[in-house]
Design a protein around this nucleic acid. Structure first.
Lengths: 210, 210, 210, 210
DNA sequence: GATGAATGAGCATTCATTCAT
DNA sequence: TATGAATGAATGCTCATTCAT
């Protein structure tokens, strides 16, 4: 699926898609290593496996690469969340499972998420808005799962807050690993965060037959 | 107090201190507005009130400015935390109060924290280590306050986790304001986060006579 | 008629001719608008109605397009001068008529002449010589008409000078329109320039029975 | 006198003036040789005797060099015309003298005028307007001299036309030398053009006691 | 100590031209 | 014949850093 926010002068859409994937893959690795600003377009071209001229057949400006990278990361995270999280199921188990899936996802896409985290602000306002909408969607998914897992209604704001906390704690496993890895593995991290959350919600939670 | 990590060719320490403060003040404003990479040394010099030549009498490289800025921010946050948080007091009230102080601090230094958040990765490994140590110190303060507020011992890892959660939630008020401000004011945000935390800890908390 | 100064890899001469005409038509419009140097080969191909690859089947280098354009303009001007000017007729009326025709021609081909005027110097020396020969031919035509209109012989140099003056005044109507249009329409311009010229020549002119 | 249409980041106005003169001198030579578009900024810097970085301390964009060059040429032509032409004197001799001075000037600044002629269209609309105003001023000077040399009034349009003819004939000596030099030297060219003009005006001219 | 002119390596971007299909 | 994807040399411009005054 070609991202039409970024025009290309190449007509063959399948090719555009293929080349942009090469580009994204190469760019993520570089951005991870040295950040967007310290990465040159030539390096991106080289890491993508084609020439600088070819790079510019598929984008207009360097910032387009960043946009493509951020968008692709958000898209992949969103898709994988949609695949692994059931927003209809109403059991508590479903919330626990959703958190686990999401944290595992964050663990696996750690580098990508870190890149995204540090560089979104380098995008133009428009591009940021476009990309952040996906973040809102993801938080909304978590909110739905939370609501479904509760037996009593709690204030909307609290649901939003919990969803945001979970969301950020997932990312935190990526961008604060330097401090967390002293005390946790991914599994213990998931387990303890879940534990803490459920304790806080205990009185409103649905009964679960495990 | 002159930061000796960054050598200056000027002998007069008082002057170095004064000039660097001008520099930091000007630079924070610029980094906030356009980020470290898009800010030029000329702009920094101008915003600091002196010439480009003079700027380089007080630093060696552009990165030194970033280091000075980050260090100064951490330093100020740390100092203000130390001033408002009592790590000896053992009441639950003290934890509540510490959280409130810290969140208010984050609210007031929102821009600075945002800058720091996005730009630390641009520092050299050494500079990052130096600066992150201050972060570790702050988390440690929170850990101490948490431990003091509990009647029973809980695993060290849990203490670390809670401290990290609080720490990040404070920053989150700054860097995710775009999504949080739909549901919260600073006060309601503090109140609900505190509420959630205490619910989760309720069984281990010290009794409080309010 | 295919211009053999510019080789093509296509064999079918009729096709070459057709494609080059498309090319010239498209290119003139572009050169007029933005000049030769700011026009890209891709734009020329697009304006010509075929692909960049096809463009290069009919020329060797970008400069060939400019040559083709200049040559075509000169050719058209020359042909139309030959069609409307009678170099055998010896009346004064014929000179007056020749000037009128030529000025009207310049008015109609204003854009083309302007393009040619500004861009010939971008041609290689050889191409310039080739193209300027046509200009010499046109001036020679004017010289002939002038000589025919005189009753007495005047120095060759004077004839050349007058022919050049007429020639340039015709072009001047194109490239200095910004200043002339405040005082003249095409008709008054023709009338006054003719008047001035005839005054200067009055004593040598042939009698005319109008 | 520093041209304020083009901002410089250097404060010392005398220096700006000096460097820009170096720049103009170097650039004219290059533009003359290969045209504005085929001249690189590096070449301009080199020909000016300083580095590319320094060049850009005195201008903002490459086009600024062209503007500076065109403006300087017009300015010099205008100044020298003002110095050698008397717009108050009312004798016929004065017109003859003015033409001679102007043609000699064009002869001496041939290269500059050629450059200007071919490249003004590369300037932005604004810059063109600014520069062409100087041309209007010069034509106006010629008009004044013409009017002063006449005993009877002739239509304003005719005065404008004659002034323009003289103006263009002066330039023509530069840009059509390839065809004129077969029949003329500068002196004979001046003499014959003047002769032609005076013949045309004879009945309206002031008596001159030579 | 302060200034700001000079430097040139470095970077993003363009575009004429080629060539496999 | 026609196409258009690929190439990379070339170019305009920026900016951190130095150093003479």
């Amino acid at each position: 699926m070609v991202n039409n926010q970024v025009p290309s002068s190449i007509k063959d859409e399948a090719l555009v898609s293929k080349r942009r994937n090469q580009m994204i893959k190469g760019a993520v690795a570089l951005f991870k290593e040295k950040g967007f600003h310290k990465t040159t377009t030539r390096e991106i071209a080289k890491a993508s496996g084609f020439s600088i001229g070819t790079l510019y057949e598929y984008i207009r400006k360097k910032e387009d690469v960043l946009f493509l990278v951020c968008d692709s990361i958000y898209q992949r995270v969103k898709e994988r969340m949609e695949a692994s999280i059931d927003t209809n199921e109403t059991s508590l188990q479903n919330l626990v499972q959703a958190i686990r899936s999401y944290f595992q996802l964050m663990d696996g896409m750690q580098d990508e998420v870190l890149v995204m985290y540090q560089e979104v602000k380098s995008l133009s306002k428009d591009a940021q808005d476009y990309v952040l909408q996906k973040e809102r969607d993801m938080v909304a998914m978590l909110e739905q799962v939370i609501v479904n897992s509760l037996s009593e209604k709690i204030p909307e704001a609290d649901v939003a807050l919990i969803a945001n906390n979970i969301f950020v704690q997932g990312q935190m496993w990526g961008f604060r690993r330097w401090i967390l890895k002293r005390s946790f593995t991914l599994d213990t991290y998931i387990e303890r965060q879940t534990h803490l959350l459920l304790e806080g919600l205990s009185s409103q939670l649905k009964e679960t037959q495990s």
